[in-house]
């Protein structure tokens, strides 16, 4: 009968009136954020960084600026450079994660935050000092070893540089081929002791 579908529509809206809202009131409540979330501020471990600048080369926008000088310890520790400048112009970053994908030494990670609004563009550049001091809550994006350990960047504690690496340098090849390594959970107890 004509008008029946209109009545049906009214019933649907009435039914939804009694449902619990699907939205939540930010900032009191937040929606769940997934561990792979590609967010702000980048997590960078100076101890792991070699200054190879793969990340800078791979960034589609060219917003990572790296200046290195040969480190005094270089001969002893291999091909390690000292970082003088490591700036990310985060106001232009599109959080594509290609820099993280390119970093061969598990040194750069996507962050997990999203509340880093600033009042001026100048403040938006992440300097090497900021990166050093930032809270290290790395996202598990493109870092299967973190994912396998079940790390949750929003809820978990900050990780130090020893906990985030992969066991084998061949990891990249294997990951690309999809042959997942049997990761043992990160040996957190051991590394805690070391850092203490």
């Amino acid at each position: 009968m004509y008008g029946l579908a209109m009545a049906k529509g009214l019933m649907v809206t009435l039914k939804n009136l009694t449902k619990k809202p699907t939205t939540v009131q930010y900032p009191e409540e937040r929606v769940k954020q997934h561990p792979r979330f590609r967010g702000e501020e980048f997590v960078w471990y100076e101890e792991r960084c070699t200054g190879c600048a793969s990340c800078a080369k791979y960034c589609p926008l060219g917003i990572i600026k790296i200046v290195t000088s040969p480190s005094e310890t270089a001969p002893k520790q291999g091909d390690k450079y000292r970082l003088e400048v490591f700036d990310i112009e985060i106001q232009r970053c599109m959080f594509c994660g290609l820099c993280v994908e390119a970093c061969p030494y598990d040194c750069l990670f996507m962050g997990s935050g999203f509340e880093q609004g600033k009042y001026s563009r100048k403040d938006m550049v992440l300097h090497v000092e900021d990166l050093r001091q930032a809270d290290k809550h790395p996202s598990t994006f493109f870092r299967p070893q973190l994912e396998a350990s079940g790390y949750d960047p929003r809820g978990g504690r900050p990780l130090n540089w020893r906990e985030v690496g992969r066991e084998s340098w061949r990891w990249h090849q294997q990951e690309k081929s999809g042959l997942r390594l049997e990761h043992s959970p990160v040996d957190t107890a051991g590394s805690q002791q070391e850092s203490n």
Binding site: T13, N16, L17, P21, T23, Q25
Partner: peptide, 13 residues
């Protein structure tokens, strides 16, 4: 407020 609830959201609060 009522429209919000019809829309399944919270509405002004």
């Amino acid at each position: 407020r009522l429209l919000g609830r019809f829309h399944n959201r919270i509405g002004p609060n």
